[in-house]
């Protein structure tokens, strides 16, 4: 038997909270988490990636310049360093990321199993011409992603942090229709 590892436990697909600009970083809600993260590493810099994840979740799916500056100050890092890191990794967004974020895997296994159709469908439904952009209605940010590690269930997509495997264009349509 070949068990399927569940990609992620289903969560409610709720639209993201609008971006909040905190007066300073970390905002009260994140203080405890950030301190816990810092305690894990011998240097402050090492906490940057996990704290950027927190900042992005807090900021409604993207890290605004204000949040970025806040993180830099909090970790005693140069703003350039933080921006350099932020733009290196494909999971961080430096622009408003819509109410929902949709990743479509484009790598070989998914490509063989229908990723191009999914991508076309996603762009069409989201009303954008290119990946990496938010459609006019502000609903979706569609991103091309490289292999998501779900190749045995290709084609794979992510919607708001939840993986969906063996997705058909119709299935994707339904998923997207379920998003506000």
């Amino acid at each position: 038997m070949n068990p399927r590892a569940p990609a992620a436990e289903p969560k409610d697909v709720a639209p993201r909270a609008p971006a909040v600009v905190p007066a300073s970083f970390p905002p009260a809600e994140l203080k405890a988490t950030c301190e816990k993260i810092l305690a894990r590493y011998p240097t402050k810099m090492a906490a940057l990636l996990p704290i950027l994840h927190e900042a992005q979740a807090f900021g409604g799916g993207w890290v605004s310049p204000e949040l970025e500056a806040g993180v830099a100050a909090y970790l005693d890092l140069s703003p350039a360093h933080v921006h350099g890191v932020l733009t290196f990794y494909s999971m961080y967004n430096t622009k408003p990321a819509g109410r929902h974020e949709l990743w479509v895997c484009r790598t070989l296994s998914c490509w063989r199993r229908g990723a191009p159709e999914l991508r076309a469908k996603a762009l069409d439904k989201a009303g954008c011409t290119r990946t990496g952009e938010v459609g006019e209605d502000g609903r979706f940010l569609v991103k091309d992603m490289e292999c998501l590690g779900l190749c045995e269930q290709a084609p794979a997509i992510w919607l708001d942090g939840v993986a969906h495997a063996n997705v058909t264009p119709e299935g994707l349509e339904q998923l997207m229709d379920g998003c506000e």
Partner: peptide
């Protein structure tokens, strides 16, 4: 030791970036 610059982006979009200030 003033760290105003960093590399930004990656791949063939890698470029030098400056602090937001």
């Amino acid at each position: 030791d003033t760290n105003e610059l960093s590399m930004g982006q990656r791949s063939d979009h890698e470029q030098v970036i400056m602090t937001s200030a």
